[in-house]
Amino acid sequence: MTDLVRVQVTFTSPAGDRASGCTGESTATAKVSLPEPLGDRDVIVDNYTRFTAEGAEPPALRLCGELGCTPPATGCTPASYEQALTAVDAPEHTYRNSERCDGKWLVLDFSWRTGPACDDSTDPACSARLGDRWFFRSKKSGWEPISRTSAGGCRDVRREEPAFPSSLCRSLAPLSSALHPSYPPPSASSTPGARSTATATP
């Protein structure tokens, strides 16, 4: 990509050899020379860390975050919903099933595949999935998680945030038990190694 400058930094240190006695760590500075002026291009260091001149005071560069150098504005948009999924650490390849949003508050239902990678829609293993429901409030930095639940209605979220508007949650149906199964704790009789005894009174 012509709008990027890629920098690879490689270093070696005897600290990797614990027997050498050199086990301390310190910060070091590496100077990089480019064959031509950087201009308005971004810099990527070691394939992952990205810096941009946008919004920075020259000659400094600004470190970009997980959502890129220009995160989406908080709102009722697909890009903003993706930020909400990141905020709750949703699994990779998550599907958004439904969104209820008014710009200040958000309800997000999503699910993810749990079975093998296959395309046989008749095989239950190929369509197996789990799901979740999260509630969010709008912040300058993005959607902020409030609570999660599998229940319908507003009770759970209003317990955490009484200001959450009932218009967004009043008609919510509970999540399917297939998407959000609940497992009761094992009883004493089903505990491995447990034995039941009976006594008789003569």
Rank of each mutant, 00 (worst) to 15 (best):
S20L: 07
S167F: 04
G75Q: 09
D46W: 05
V5S: 00
A87C: 11
T74K: 12
T23P: 02
C169R: 10
R6Y: 02
A90E: 08
P124G: 09
V45Y: 03
C169A: 06
S98V: 00
S176I: 01
T74A: 10
A163E: 15
G55A: 04
S138M: 08
T10L: 14
P124M: 05
T10M: 08
A188V: 13
E54K: 12
T86V: 15
G16I: 10
A188T: 13
L108R: 07
C126F: 03
P185M: 12
I44Q: 13
D109Y: 00
P35Q: 06
E160Q: 14
G153M: 09
P71H: 07
K139N: 07
T94S: 14
A163Q: 14
W112D: 02
P185T: 14
Y95M: 07
R113E: 12
W112L: 05
L108F: 06
A173K: 15
P145C: 11
D40P: 01
D102P: 00
E161L: 11
R155V: 12
R148Y: 00
L61V: 08
E66C: 03
P91I: 08
W105V: 04
A194G: 03
A188M: 12
P59E: 01
F136C: 10
T27M: 11
L130A: 06
Y81R: 03
R137D: 08
P14H: 12
F11K: 11
P116D: 13
N47I: 01
P145I: 10
W134T: 08
W112N: 04
A30D: 12
E99P: 00
G55Y: 07
S111L: 01
T12R: 14
V157N: 05
D40L: 02
E99S: 13
E57N: 09
V5E: 07
D109Q: 06
G68V: 10
T23K: 06
D119T: 13
P37S: 00
T77L: 09
T27W: 09
A56V: 07
N47A: 13
P37V: 03
C69G: 02
T149G: 05
S166G: 13
P91R: 11
S167N: 12
L175R: 02
P186N: 10
P145N: 12
A90W: 02
W143V: 11
R195D: 03
L38Y: 10
T49Y: 07
V9H: 02
E161T: 12
S127K: 14
E57H: 06
A90C: 09
R18W: 02
L175A: 02
P124K: 09
A194T: 14
P202L: 11
P71E: 05
